[in-house]
């Protein structure tokens, strides 16, 4: 579990640490980012979204990425998901399947909840006979068993996001990337969905890379919090979250950690001011 140990990374040394031969991975790492750089545009107008960022996420680990605006959080997830290519550096998921969830549920509005999930199964070539049953099971897992035939617009925001979670799970992914998935939900719904996500991730031993700008959310959910600097995005600090039994968003340990992270984040923002 060395990846969970706290260290203050210097991008260069971290790169050396992680600069193994391509294709070689130790059994413990699910996602390995080495020296990722992403530049948009070219010449004087070029924007450095991410700069030599290295990060290793262990199998079954829940890592929350926190940072102010412009730290390239979403870019990073797009790169891991293969939706975007890095300008330099390497992404290694060792052949693991990766699914992504966005702030918007991004469900197909012409399909019912069940059909949305079934389409993900279909894309994986799951035989037709099994699709319906598996989709039903997945929707049961997010407590939407009674709403399988509803279309997205008939569901509430939190329910849509749960359908999106079921669809992500249907992709049979080992790594779940979440880009502020609960950002648009009210606090009450978000709180319940945190419990849900906790349960589902431990049941399925998912590796999660969770981007948020809500520090408390990160302290509530993560095994580790990774703090990114702004423009260009780079790892400036990591926090291990002690596993001391049940956590709630309003518990003292969560609040403590959150205020620590917030202080550090403010310091970083002042640097830009």
């Amino acid at each position: 579990m060395n990846v969970l140990q706290r260290y203050r990374p210097d991008p260069r040394s971290a790169a050396q640490l992680d600069g193994r031969r391509p294709g070689h991975t130790d059994g413990d790492a699910a996602v390995r980012l080495s020296d990722i750089t992403k530049v948009y545009g070219r010449g004087p107008a070029a924007v450095h979204a991410v700069d030599r960022l290295s990060l290793t996420v262990g199998q079954g680990e829940f890592v929350c990425i926190v940072g102010a605006s412009g730290c390239g959080k979403s870019t990073l997830l797009s790169i891991v998901a293969g939706l975007d290519t890095p300008t330099a550096g390497q992404v290694d998921t060792a052949g693991r399947r990766v699914a992504i969830m966005f702030q918007e549920p991004a469900l197909f509005p012409w399909l019912t909840a069940r059909r949305n999930v079934e389409l993900a199964l279909r894309a994986l070539d799951v035989p037709k006979a099994q699709r319906k049953r598996r989709a039903g099971e997945l929707l049961d897992a997010v407590h939407l068993g009674d709403f399988t035939d509803k279309r997205p617009h008939e569901l509430s925001g939190g329910m849509r996001q749960r359908v999106a979670l079921a669809r992500a799970l249907a992709q049979d992914a080992d790594v779940l990337l979440m880009d502020e998935p609960f950002g648009a939900l009210d606090a009450m719904t978000r709180d319940l969905l945190h419990d849900e996500l906790d349960r589902i991730c431990s049941e399925r031993s998912l590796t999660v890379l969770f981007v948020t700008h809500n520090v408390r959310e990160a302290a509530r959910l993560g095994d580790r919090i990774v703090l990114l600097s702004s423009r260009p995005g780079r790892v400036i600090e990591e926090y291990d979250v002690p596993r001391s039994g049940p956590r709630r968003i309003d518990s003292a340990s969560v609040a403590n950690l959150a205020s620590q992270v917030t202080d550090r984040l403010r310091e970083e923002m002042r640097r830009h001011g």
């Binding site: 709403f147 596993r243 956590r247």
Partner: peptide
């Protein structure tokens, strides 16, 4: 390594009914 997650904070049934209640 796999299941080193925090267990759900409340027992499953009360959580289910909370979320089902919210849904309805």
């Amino acid at each position: 390594m796999a299941s080193t997650k925090t267990p759900p904070s409340r027992d499953a049934t009360s959580e289910n009914s909370a979320i089902a209640g919210l849904d309805s």
